[in-house]
Write a protein that binds this DNA or RNA. Structure first.
Length: 476
RNA sequence: GGCCCCAUCGUCUAGAGGCCUAGGACACCACCCUCUCAAGGUGGCGACACGGGUUCGAAUCCCGUUGGGGCUGCCA
């Protein structure tokens, strides 16, 4: 019955261990599993492999759930491997009964010492293989691997890598503490959950022969289809690591990357639709995803490209959607100002101008902060550069006088009194437009770059604008 | 060291023997637009790692070399 079920429906699993935030590499593995499940109308199983007491933490379990939810990967079934230890233990007993294992009390030091002595490759030498040792404290259970033949991994992306059985050492399946090891637990759960496709990182490929040997020993039936995904690397072409690379998914969320962009980018790191398109919606990815189209070579996690995608996507948002997505940086946890300072009308007036200029949502505050705070902080470097040309004092004096009178409005291509008066003064003083606007911009916004000046001035209001111009004038 | 994997522009890739004087995207450069910055427009730079085969014909198939990577735990 199980066998039949396996034929008709795809069942995949994502099996993270809660030892840290969700890693971009793991997220991609989760995504590919999820895409296949959704594409095939199958089942996506989330299996938290929380059997490492030393490293697991409950908060990481929550963090993984949250990260998956953030990118919108929903699961159909969810298990905790820690709740299944009896099943694993039963499987271990079955192995003992089958005679395919033996007990071993060699310590790591002894194994290493013997390897060094014989000068051969490191690893276990089968020392206790025929010693008939009994179970007991400090005794581990090893699986006796075949000496002859080879084990072939049926892999959709890699073909059929084969491993000489003679190079597979007799590996530990049950620790001396009685705890079942990762591979065994993995196999037991995959058999029990009727997993049809194992999609995971390439780093698992070398242990897959052990997986297969155990699967066979336990009589698991038809083995799953494997898909070992190419590793994701940094600029030095090394596998992304928690220690040296920014890999936590939530790091990107907090920087203001859009979840759909993250998903799109991750999907493209190792897969592309047959026509090579890059910008895909989730639905399109589900529709077009095929395991057979997954590439073999490692992919560089290119933040510059991610960022470009993000900017494109932000710009394509409706103003309403943009405003909605921006909330965490406006009124939420990432807003740099106190709640009472924030004015939704100010943002509404600036939103379209801001939207075109940010690639990350986290860049929003710096685009509008000068409109919310009472006093701007002038960037000294920007100020020095802006007031360098001759005649700036005169310029500011005249602008202050003129703008005290001029209609305070700016309608592009129609009524632009602020703009007209400013550049009229600048021209009279022999300053080009760039140099004319620079000191005014820095005086009013605090920086030499930002949203369009005249629109900003209208939002700021005449009084505050003039006050800032006078304050700047006083600096000269 | 051993086992395994990988190899098209700087990066991600399209390419499944002739459609390839190798296409796209990001990055970079130049110009245009322009109140700054973006955005947008136009153009440019730029790759089949190397050597042997197979074939009328190879980026595409085979072998080797070189280079890169992964694994090598009584972690998962």
């Amino acid at each position: 019955m199980l066998r039949y079920a396996r034929r008709v429906s795809v069942r995949v699993r994502f099996a993270p261990s809660p030892t840290g935030f969700l890693h971009v590499g793991s997220a991609r593995a989760a995504l590919y599993n999820w895409l296949l499940a959704r594409h095939a109308g199958g089942t996506f199983v989330l299996r938290i492999e929380d059997t490492d007491e030393a490293r697991d933490r409950e908060e990481w379990v929550t963090a993984i759930d949250e990260s998956l939810r953030w990118i919108g990967l929903d699961w159909d079934e969810r298990y905790r491997q820690s709740e299944r230890v009896e099943l694993h233990a039963a499987a271990a007993e079955k192995l003992v009964a089958s005679g395919l294992t033996y007990w071993c009390d060699c310590t790591r030091e002894e194994v290493d010492a013997r390897a060094k002595e014989r000068g051969g490759p490191p690893g276990y030498d089968g020392h206790c293989r025929d010693l008939g040792k009994e179970a007991g404290p400090d005794v581990a259970l090893r699986f006796r691997t075949p000496d002859q033949g080879e084990t072939v991994v049926p892999d959709v992306v890699r073909g059929e890598p084969s491993f000489p059985n003679s190079t597979i050492e007799d590996f530990v399946v049950v620790r001396s503490t009685g705890k079942v090891m990762f591979v065994l637990a993995n196999v037991v759960d995959d058999i029990d959950m009727a997993i049809t496709h194992v999609i995971r990182g390439e780093e698992h490929l070398p242990t897959t022969p052990k997986y297969l040997l155990l699967w066979q020993a336990l009589g698991g039936g038809a083995v799953p289809v494997f898909a070992h995904l190419p590793v994701i690397v940094n600029e030095k072409r090394q596998k992304l690591s928690k220690r040296r690379d920014p890999v936590a998914l939530e790091l990107y969320r907090d920087e203001g990357y859009l979840s759909e962009v993250m998903l799109n980018y991750l999907a493209l790191l190792g897969w592309s639709p047959s026509d090579g398109r890059e910008r895909l919606t989730l639905d399109e990815m589900v529709q077009e995803f095929r395991l057979e189209d997954v590439g073999k070579s490692p992919g560089f996690f290119d933040v510059a490209k991610l960022r470009a995608f993000n900017g494109d996507t932000i710009r394509a948002l409706s103003v309403e959607a943009f405003t909605e997505r921006a909330q965490p940086w406006l009124t939420g946890p990432f807003a740099p100002w106190s709640a009472d300072l924030y004015d939704p009308d100010v943002f509404a007036a600036m939103a379209p101008l801001v939207q075109e200029r940010v690639a990350l949502l986290s860049e929003i505050p710096a685009m509008i902060d000068f409109l919310l705070v009472d006093e701007v902080t002038i960037d000294d470097g920007d100020w020095e550069k802006a007031v360098k040309p001759e005649g700036i004092t005169k310029l500011l004096d005249e602008v202050i006088a003129s703008w005290a009178e001029v209609p305070w409005e700016h309608v592009p291509d129609e009524r632009e009194p602020l703009k007209d008066s400013l550049f009229e003064i600048g021209e009279r003083l022999g300053l080009n437009k760039k140099r004319t606007q620079a000191p005014v911009r820095v005086a009013v916004t605090g920086r030499s770059v930002g949203p369009p000046l005249f629109e900003s001035l209208v939002v700021l209001g005449r009084e505050r604008a003039l006050a800032r111009l006078r304050a700047a004038r006083a600096r000269l």
